[in-house]
């Protein structure tokens, strides 16, 4: 791991020509940035500084790990990307929309093209697995037929085709996290953000989650995942950036 803190923290993800040229994801990659952060600062209302002058560009089809100790600003970075927080200054561009300015229904419409997976799954306890997943499509106003059509392939993708009628508390943590991944992808978003998706899971379950994310990446989904599990990062062999005290640092 090489810290590049002596350089100004202007970071872009490794170009395909660099270390990743041979990987299958790299070949599909176009130069088009799907996520872009420009000179982003985020200071919370209580004065806590989460991000300092962060620059980051992620291309379509990338698989990027964001690591760093807890409290470093990983979650804040993802929250900026799905519009749960606004930057204090700078631009956050996703799908060519500036999230710093997007509000109301236009933010809602953009969020339909961003899938999010959470560490605590955020499943609705009183709804079954199928309902939890279909919830996304209901929320977007899809027809029953369309929901039915998409549900089973999505369940199969995460290996839960037999658990559709279970309630979340009847599932293991790993299964719940896979439900939450299914929910994030059923709307077929081009970008998937995963905030510590393996944080509550043992290694086997974590690795299963990573495998599903890799599969999605092979299907063309851009994956951005935060984790503090170095072992997992090393095993999965994908580009990594690190956040330390609000600064972004590239790690190869």
């Amino acid at each position: 791991m090489t810290s590049l803190s002596d350089r100004p923290p202007v970071i872009t993800t490794p170009r395909p020509s660099a270390s990743q040229a041979a990987s299958p994801t790299a070949r599909r990659r176009t130069a088009q940035a799907i996520v872009k952060l420009q000179r982003v600062n985020k200071t919370y209302a209580n004065g806590a500084i989460a991000l300092k002058d962060v620059n980051l560009s992620i291309n379509r089809g990338d698989f990027l790990f964001i690591t760093g100790p807890s409290g470093a600003g990983k979650s804040t970075l993802l929250k900026l990307l799905y519009g749960a927080e606004r930057p204090t200054s700078g631009n956050v561009m996703v799908h060519d929309h500036n999230l710093a300015q997007l509000r109301g229904d236009r933010l809602s419409l953009l969020r339909r093209r961003i899938g999010v997976v959470f560490q605590d799954y955020k499943l609705i306890p009183r709804r079954t697995v199928s309902e939890n997943i279909a919830f996304v499509l209901w929320a977007q106003g899809c027809s029953r037929k369309e929901i039915h059509r998409r549900l089973l392939p999505t369940l199969r993708l995460v290996g839960l085709q037999d658990k559709g009628d279970c309630f979340p508390d009847e599932l293991s943590g790993g299964e719940q996290q896979r439900v939450s991944i299914a929910r994030a992808i059923i709307g077929t978003p081009p970008v998937l953000l995963a905030d510590e998706p393996t944080g509550n899971l043992d290694f086997d379950n974590s690795w299963q989650v990573i495998k599903i994310l890799k599969k999605l990446n092979d299907m063309g989904v851009t994956i951005i995942i935060t984790t503090h599990d170095e072992h997992l990062v090393r095993m999965s062999n994908h580009p990594v950036v690190q956040i330390r005290n609000g600064h972004l640092i590239t790690v190869v």
Binding site: Y82, A84, G104, D105, S108, L109, L110, R111, R112, R113, I114, V116, K122, I124, F135, V136, A139, Q140, R183, G187
Partner: peptide, 10 residues
């Protein structure tokens, strides 16, 4: 909260 995150309009 989940609805908001998955893009349901207000």
């Amino acid at each position: 909260e989940v609805m908001q995150l998955v893009g349901a309009t207000a």
